[in-house]
Amino acid sequence: MTPSTIELPVTADDYRIARYAAAAIALTVAEAALPSPLPGIKPGLANIIVLVVLVRYGWRDAAWVSLLRVVAGSLVIGQFLAPGFFLALAGALCSLGVLALAQHLPARLFGPVSVSVLAAFAHIGGQIVLARAWLVPHDGVFYLLPLFATAALFFGTINGLVAARLLAVPVAPPPSAKAAA
């Protein structure tokens, strides 16, 4: 007697999102190995992938990649449901909210760098609000805000430049078509 198998139909979209999410998770894991001067200050390299996906495929795909990255990335580095996971989730949700607005900036004037910097600020904002409300219920956390904001500006710019560099290269064959074939 063969156990019945359930086949979930997999679309080209699913393949594409999974590929980009895998790339983002790889960057998250690589980044977890880097020492950080202050908890919360990280390059956020996975956001490069989110930016690229946002520009190429739209907000819905970017949201999928970002949230899959947070959940699966935290599983891989053993942080799932730890405080760091919720901070990352709050940051990701806030920056997705800002990305939804920032993608409508006139493309003639604003490139990925602007979007990246805005998202980085939203990221740090979401994290610090959650930290203030839940982890450190004291206004003292806001003393760290200038440092976080500096890091957000710096890494947001770098990530945006890398994303802009990636986006400047045209996609030769659409990767989704190849994967789905």
Binding site: V113, L153, A164
Partner: peptide, 13 residues
């Protein structure tokens, strides 16, 4: 890779 608006935003930020 930086457009005029990017410079403006970076300076403001």
């Amino acid at each position: 890779l930086l457009k005029p608006g990017d410079w403006l935003l970076l300076v403001c930020a």
